[in-house]
Simulated scan of single mutants.
Amino acid sequence: MRDIASTNDARNALIKEIDETSLPFGMVALWCLGQASFIMKGGSTTIYIDPFTIEDALAESRYGLRRTYPSAVRPEEITNADYCLITHDHVDHLDPDTIQAMAAQAWETVFFAPACCKDTLLGLGVRADRLHIADTREEYSGQAVIKPIAAAHEELSTDREGFHEYVGYIIRLNGVTLYHAGDTLIYDGLQARLSEEEIDVGLLPINGRDFYRGERGIVGNMNYREAAELANGAGFKMTVPMHYDLFAGNAERPGYFVDYVYDHFPSLPIHVMARGERFIFVADSAVK
């Protein structure tokens, strides 16, 4: 397996690999950039979710965030996004450097974000006619079907107009249904809602929360046990853990998630993303 984070040439190779990936109906390719940053492609449609690609030195000097490994792609290299989905306004999910570069270079990219992020995104150069509010009461149909879903980070929060400030996304792409949870705890009704959606691939945070991280202002998520229970209860066909590897002060060992699933739900399919990996999911519809 190649290391996409080692050289400039290798970084450019990631975009090349995405562009050259072509999959038939019923298949989706995933790439993980760390934390909750994912790229997915189905058919000819490429979606970035929470792209956090700021360079190490800038992340530390501006935000006090010390990455444990460098970004696999630089902001100025992202020119192939059909959609960019933002789950909330924390900098490791709404990265100003990445969004500004994407807005300047890929004018046709369609952005989704909670209403509280609107002014920030417009200030970064996102075109108003390409920006959609992630309203959990609606869904959008285009090259993909995109359904925002409420997230509780660490609680369900809405603005004065009733828009949720934290969201995840249910995405129907090329015959595959995916769920990116964003940053969230499990709240009443979430498992039942996801069961109804018949999720093929679920991307769930596993880093958890505790008193000491809360004291440092780190807002928490479900932990690896809760993620496994949710995936099993909602009937995910494949579960990919996330949000555990990019910052040492807010990390978790994915092996704990693997062990818990092995001990309690040995028939539950899971996959831990390797750095630089292209993971291809094949839905039942592709093999019938």
Results as ranks from 00 to 15, higher is better:
Thr87His: 03
Leu131Gly: 01
Glu138Leu: 13
Leu178Ala: 07
Ala192Met: 08
Ser157Ile: 14
Leu190Thr: 02
Thr177Phe: 11
Ala81Gly: 14
Ala103Gly: 09
Leu65Glu: 05
Asn174Phe: 11
His153Met: 02
Asp95Leu: 05
Leu185Tyr: 05
Leu124Gly: 01
Phe163Thr: 05
Glu76Trp: 12
Tyr140Glu: 09
Ala81Ser: 12
Ile199Val: 15
Ser157His: 08
Tyr83Pro: 00
Glu196Lys: 06
Arg67Glu: 09
Asp89Val: 15
Ala113Leu: 13
Asp200Thr: 06
Glu139Lys: 06
Gly123Asp: 12
Arg127Trp: 11
Ser71Ile: 00
Thr98Gly: 10
His132Trp: 12
Thr158Glu: 14
Tyr140Ile: 10
Leu121His: 02
Ile171Arg: 01
Ser141Thr: 10
Val201Leu: 01
Ala59Pro: 03
Arg137Pro: 11
Cys117Val: 12
His180Cys: 04
Ala104Arg: 05
Asp183Glu: 13
Thr120His: 04
Glu77Lys: 05
Ala72Met: 08
Thr87Val: 14
Ile171Leu: 09
Ile170Gln: 07
Ser141His: 08
Ala57Tyr: 10
His90Trp: 07
Phe111Cys: 13
Asp95Gly: 02
Leu178Val: 15
Glu77Gly: 03
Ala151His: 03
Leu122His: 05
Leu190Pro: 01
Asp183Ala: 14
Asp119Ala: 05
Asp200Ile: 01
Leu58His: 05
Gly175Gln: 13
Pro114Val: 14
Glu138Trp: 12
Leu65Gly: 02
Ala181Trp: 04
Glu161Gln: 13
Ala128Glu: 15
Asn174Trp: 14
Ser141Gly: 06
Pro70Met: 03
Thr136Trp: 06
Cys84Phe: 07
Ala134Phe: 05
Tyr69Gln: 02
Glu165Trp: 03
Leu58Asn: 06
Glu165Cys: 14
Gln100Met: 08
Asp89Glu: 13
Ala59Met: 09
Lys147Cys: 07
Gly182Lys: 02
Ala113Gln: 07
Ala181Met: 15
Glu196Asn: 08
Gly123Ala: 03
Leu94Ile: 05
Leu131Ala: 02
Gly202Arg: 00
His93Thr: 04
Tyr63Ala: 05
Val167Ala: 01
Ile186Gly: 05
Asp159Phe: 08
Glu155Trp: 09
Asp82Tyr: 09
Ser71Thr: 15
Gln105Asn: 11
Ile199His: 00
Glu154Gln: 05
Arg137Ile: 10
Tyr166Ala: 09
Leu58Arg: 04
Gly162Phe: 07
Thr136Cys: 15
Asn80Met: 13
Gly175His: 11
Leu121Arg: 02
Asp89His: 11
Val167Asp: 01
Asn80Ile: 15
Leu190Ile: 08
Asp89Gln: 12
Glu108Ala: 09
Ala106Gly: 08
Ile146Val: 14
Thr158Arg: 08
Ile99Cys: 02
Val126Arg: 00
Ser71Tyr: 01
Ala151Glu: 03
Thr177Ala: 11
Arg74His: 01
Ile186Met: 10
Lys118Asp: 03
Leu173Pro: 15
Val126Gly: 00
Ile199Asn: 00
Ala152Trp: 02
Pro75Met: 04
Arg193Leu: 10
Ser141Ala: 12
Val91Ala: 04
Asp97Ile: 12
Ser61Met: 11
Leu190Arg: 00
Asp95Phe: 02
Lys147Trp: 06
Thr120Val: 07
Ser71Trp: 00
Gln105Lys: 09
Asp159His: 04
Tyr63His: 15
